[in-house]
Amino acid sequence: MTAAALSPGRSNLHRFLSGYGQEIVVLLSIVALFVVVGAINHRFLSDTNINSIFAGNAYIAIAAIGMSMVIIAGHIDVSVGALIGVIATIAGTLAVSGYPIWVAWTVPILFAIAVNAGVGTLVAYTRIPSIVVTLGMLSILKGGLISATAGEWISNLPPEFMIAQMRPFGIPSAVWFMVALTIIASLFLRYTDFGRSIYAVGGNMEAARAAGINPERTVIGVFALHGLFAGIAGILFATQLQVIQSTVPPNLELTVITASVIGGVSILGGTGTVIGSTLAAILFACIGSALIFLNVSAYWLRAVLGLMILATVLADMARRRRAK
């Protein structure tokens, strides 16, 4: 959602297109990728591959929903990858230690909400930039995880714990979660007072305060919500394979931030949608898979991601300059 989406006096279609420009670009890229790569290698379109693209990366899209809210509010979180690693390990440990399954699912999520609410409180009241607080949190979570587990894998997970592998109505539950949470979060951001206050705080904090919003409370709330989404993402991540590796998934925070930014969330805060970030997460997954099917070495994946972030950010800045 950009300022153009709110400006009156344009046709509905034009308003829609300009409001969701980035989202449409990402969606078209996904379609184009499927058509082109599918034409070159039919196996790209096989059920197993499409299944692995969507179900295997849904947790990234879900984490990107929370990250998008944080970035819309004008902040950032570089510790989300470490947090997801910690959540997965706590969940797995609880599950194999004989606690009820619902405990193994909910306790780690509550933990994630508490950690991020703490981060949000520090950011909101001490005015320490979120990048610094979350850098510190990254060290704490990562170091804590490795020293607590010594890198030992958790296996023999009870089958009823594996929520990501369940398939209600033939579709992996991770995909259900991704779709449902994206819709809920979109509606929440657009139609609730709290959702709109996130845009207001990210756009101009003092103006938001003057308009009667409590920016501190909004920032804490956003980080807590981000914790909720990271928690759900962590549970799905923990239950998608038969073992939990008890490590921080490499580059996860980068992938999540990239998904938000490419999906149209301006890194300067104030604009963006979670539909865009979910589409961007899917686009990445497609690109990663496409590289394999096009026989491009997977070693180049990160360079491609880096180029994509850079191109998107440069385009974002150019668009802002034109808008001025």
């Binding site: 994946l301 360079a303 880096g306």
Partner: peptide, 11 residues
């Protein structure tokens, strides 16, 4: 560029 340079190194 953190991603890009590391990606180039890996590639």
């Amino acid at each position: 560029t953190l991603a890009l340079y590391r990606g180039l190194a890996e590639g």
